[in-house]
Amino acid sequence: MASKLYHWLNERLGFDDLYKGLLDRPEPRGTWWNTLGSATLFLFTMQVMTGIFLLMYYTPSPDHAYDSIQYIMNEVAFGWLIRGIHHWSATLMVLLVFLHMLRVFATASYKYPRELTWVIGVFLLLTTLGMGLTGYLLPWNQRSYFATTVATEIAGLVPGIGAFITRTLRGGTDLSALTLSRFFAAHVWMLPALLTVLIGIHLYLIIRHGESEYPTEED
């Protein structure tokens, strides 16, 4: 019965092909350094999951943002754990993305035929930093307020269009409710959507070209 059901589903969904195409692939001999990419992907998944939980209680308005986080930390069951994981996972994610990049650079894995995998990877790094920057403001505390003031000021140093960029980021001349809602929208929708698409392309390219082998004397 079970095998009949499996056969029926497999005929329609193609488990076996998926298994052959995605999992049962030959790979060059790897080391623990090769796990940095998948570890980053794992942290991204953690961020999405804990982020969704935080979203249930967080309110993106200057009046309530701080209090809603106090509520998450003190009242919600395991709220402190979810926020703690989200916070530390963000920190580790930046660190791992950076280490992953260094590993790829050191083994020259960005060379033919994997040039585009590297380019997408750099965009992933920038988007991750963007997630860090936008997420930093959301607790609406002293540190986030003043750090974002400085960060948006620095964006204003771009010759010519600097003032426009600062105004667009802040939604006005000063940090305000608008800034908070813009950063919130970027943090929970725009950047995660971008990250998901970029990760998809990155993974597709990795499967297409296979993981790179460690270079030998002859390479």
């Binding site: 298994y19 692939r25 030959p26 790979e27 060059p28 001999r29 790897g30 296979g210 082998e213």
Partner: peptide, 8 residues
Amino acid sequence: LQRGERFW
């Protein structure tokens, strides 16, 4: 790849 391992 010949000398390598399986992904899964």
